[in-house]
């Protein structure tokens, strides 16, 4: 297998290469965050028959920059009775956990920051690290709303890890690998080779098509819960908990929470893209294939799911915390077990 990282190929394996590799996702993330914030503003405006921001730049396209500058200027308040070390550390842990996920996201067949062969497992592991940041922030604020928000966030994310893990387990069985590049390579060719359509293989997979569809939907629902987006934005549900775990945060520390939320949105969209929708593969065989187009396909597929999250947020009401648990434990989990068994059977038949 050839070296799957173009930076190493160009300048060799030295510390400059490592620095570049660890910074590249950050550059992408900054650009993505600006686009996603503008997208959130403009898509919500479109849904609600408003114009959205129109004054900053033509059609308000530099509004996200203005918002970032505004947040930088804000006073950074730490409440007197807060536990200061934990309070100050929480947003950075939260962000570090989301950024760690980018280490294994393959943007193209020739670029993955860290080509470890446990990528899928790694994503699952660091994905739950962010919870510690939430709980720290919620507890250290010494605010009852923050505490309730933090506790709810932990309960919610831990519950939804389980159906998500079942889906990832199924993918591991179908692909026979935990290496994300390997999983994507198995879905190459036309779009019917994607795992959402049962992966490559004979006509027998058509019988199992409903199961792989359901698996995909389970993962999308679970990922909404993991990123705390509507209809599962209970930890920060502003109608009851003001702003949940980040009630007491202001200025740049709030921006870090915000940034981490957007980074998480991209991570889960990227995971959906990788494990179900062929990652950087072109949907049409060799048409527009190759590593450069790979970045295009990967990012556009991921953006579809980012858009889906924004769309749902502005359409649906919020669930209650016990209903959320009901959905996780009594609906998603049994369904994911059934689908796991069915798709394992498919792998045996193939």
């Amino acid at each position: 297998m050839e070296e799957a990282n173009f930076v190493f190929n160009m300048i060799g394996e030295n510390w400059i290469a490592f620095a570049i590799i660890s910074l590249l996702p950050m550059i992408f993330l900054l650009a993505y965050a600006l686009i996603a914030i503008l997208g959130e503003l403009k898509i919500s405006a479109f849904i609600q028959e408003r114009l959205g921001p129109m004054r900053t730049g033509p059609w308000g396209i530099i509004q996200p920059v203005a918002e970032v500058v505004k947040l930088l200027q804000k006073e950074d308040i730490t409440p007197d009775s807060a536990n200061k070390p934990l309070f100050n550390l929480a947003p950075f842990i939260m962000f570090a956990a989301s950024y760690a996920g980018f280490a294994v996201i393959p943007f193209s067949s020739y670029f993955v920051p860290s080509g470890i062969n446990l990528g899928l497992f790694f994503l699952l592991a660091v994905g739950s690290l962010g919870i510690i940041g939430l709980l720290m922030g919620g507890w250290a604020s010494n605010n009852k709303y923050s505490l309730l928000g933090g506790l709810r966030a932990v309960a919610q994310i831990v519950s939804y890890e389980i159906p998500a893990a079942m889906v990832i387990l199924t993918i591991a069985v179908m692909a026979g690998s935990l290496d994300l590049q390997e999983i994507i390579r198995q879905q190459s060719g036309w779009f019917w080779n994607w795992f959402v359509f049962g992966g490559s293989g004979g006509w027998i997979k058509i019988i199992f098509l409903p199961f792989s569809f359901i698996m995909c939907i389970i993962y999308i629902i679970a990922s909404l819960a993991e990123t705390n987006r509507t209809p599962f934005d209970i930890p920060e549900g502003e109608s009851e908990l003001v702003a949940g775990y980040h009630t007491e945060y202001s200025g740049m520390k709030f921006a870090m929470f915000f940034f981490a939320e957007y980074a998480n949105m991209f991570i889960v969209s990227a995971i959906i893209t990788i494990i179900f929708f062929g990652g950087w593969n072109s949907p049409f065989g060799d048409f527009m294939g190759g590593p450069i187009w790979g970045v295009f396909w990967f990012v556009s597929k991921a953006f579809v799911f980012v858009f889906l999250q924004i769309w749902l947020r502005w359409t649906l009401p919020r669930l209650r915390v016990d209903q959320l648990m009901y959905v996780s434990w009594k609906v998603l989990l049994p369904f994911s077990f059934v689908c796991f068994l069915a798709l394992s059977l498919l792998v045996m038949l193939k």
Partner: peptide, 16 residues
């Protein structure tokens, strides 16, 4: 009431 339940969009439709 919709706003309390987390649905933001009906709020603006009605205000329009």
């Amino acid at each position: 009431f919709g706003l309390d339940s987390g649905a933001f969009t009906p709020f603006l439709y009605y205000f329009r």
